[in-house]
Amino acid sequence: MALANTILAQAATDVAHEASKGGLPQLNVIEDGSFTNQIAWLLITFFVLFVVVWRTVLPRVTTVLEEREEGIANDLDSAGRLKAEAEEVKAAYEAAVADARAKAQATILGTKDAIQADIAATLTTLEAKLAENAEEASARIAKASNEALASLDTVASEVAAAMVTKLSGVKASEKDVAAAVTAALASVEEA
């Protein structure tokens, strides 16, 4: 501590000694005449810097800042325009998709209807054909049965004639037998 005190005292003496020699140089500028050269060089250097700033630096920075602002505004502008365009394209795409979907639906429905109509038509034709076939068959059956029935008389006559010959030994005339059979059949039918 004693050391520090000594040093502080020394520093104080130094400053006091210097001050007694004439004090701060700043307060002697009129006596030593340096205020004129300080102000003269202040004017020269300040003016040079002012001209540099005024003519070169500030116009450059102003221009670059303006250009940047303009550029950003332009970029924002084109970005907005592109976004609108993209949205338009998206809307068009969505419309196309919806359209295609509707068309596909319609095609499916149309095809389904056509197939069903086709099936129905085929069925109708088939039924008609079947009905025709059935009719034809029944006609054939009826014809066959009529023929069979018609041939029954002849068979009966032949049987009757054979029976008469066998039983009585008399050769009956065909004509008589036929008449008798017909009569007998008629009576059967009546009964």
């Binding site: 005449g33 340096s34 004129t36 050269n37 300080q38 003269a40 060089w41 202040l42 250097t45």
Partner: peptide, 13 residues
Amino acid sequence: IDVSFTNSSLWMV
């Protein structure tokens, strides 16, 4: 008028 170039002027420059 004294317009000497001094250490002050030097640093301004």
